[in-house]
Write a protein that binds this DNA or RNA. Sequence first.
DNA 1: CTAACTGCAAAAGCTTTGCTTTTCA
DNA 2: TGAAAAGCAAAGCTTTTGCAGTTAG
Lengths: 150, 150
Amino acid sequence: MDEHRDITLAKKHIYRMTPQRKVILEEVRKMNNHPSADEIYEAVRKKLPRISLGTVYRNLEILSEQGEIQKLELTDSVNRYDWDTRKHYHIRCVRCGRVDNAPIAPMQQLENELYGATVFTILGHRLEFIGLCPECSKKLSCLKNNPPDK
Amino acid sequence: MDEHRDITLAKKHIYRMTPQRKVILEEVRKMNNHPSADEIYEAVRKKLPRISLGTVYRNLEILSEQGEIQKLELTDSVNRYDWDTRKHYHIRCVRCGRVDNAPIAPMQQLENELYGATVFTILGHRLEFIGLCPECSKKLSCLKNNPPDK
DNA sequence: CTAACTGCAAAAGCTTTGCTTTTCA
DNA sequence: TGAAAAGCAAAGCTTTTGCAGTTAG
């Protein structure tokens, strides 16, 4: 996607509401697990078996642009999407990739600390916590007690 | 890369110092611009024209593992590498991708705020500032004053 | 000697794009 | 009726991997 679109000219689109877009939005709104495009594709496919992955990508992009959903660009290899468009942070399991909301309020003031100290114009920040989900914690402590003979 | 390696078993390697590894490390240490693997490849190629990109990737991985360099996993499409292995944050230009250090001290205490409020075991956090570098700022303000006829 | 490493090329994984046809407004 | 969007397939980009030959220690 053209990441600079809104900054440069913001070509105005007249968006249409297609059945595909509608179902994609509905499905994302049902999912609390910060799904990837592929997971959304699989969910939507149950309703619209003929939809293509490309259409899902295009619509997720448009829906984020419209502010209907939020595209999460975490330090993961895949992008995830969130029905909750409010600013909030996330915590990601380093082992299985599970993403939860981080129970901590956004800190806009972090950006102020840079003011005057950098030549950049600050536009925002991203904060992501890394950790282990309970399931993976458990698995790892088992491993530690019974190391695979190697 | 196996992101879990250090967590699970950490198979012990006896690393060797090859000419390739040596040059890669030297080159990274010369670069202050948080280079991507490909940029490092291009720099190293001037010294070792026959080196392959795969070798560069493998060595960057090993060097990070050894703590000789730091792999930066920013919210970018490419990974970047840093000779400076100390904990520090970065600021990235949303338009051209330039990465600078962020003049702000690491805040370990952020993680404490989550303690007890999440089911995750916190291992760390990543903070990245998003902005516009001076060059891109300039270009954009020009654009605003002289919008491309469209 | 031999496990670590290299170069090369192919493959993998996620995302974007080109093209033709369909469809919403 | 015309721009937006869909479906399909191909391509793009970064990173990883398999393999056969090479090399550091």
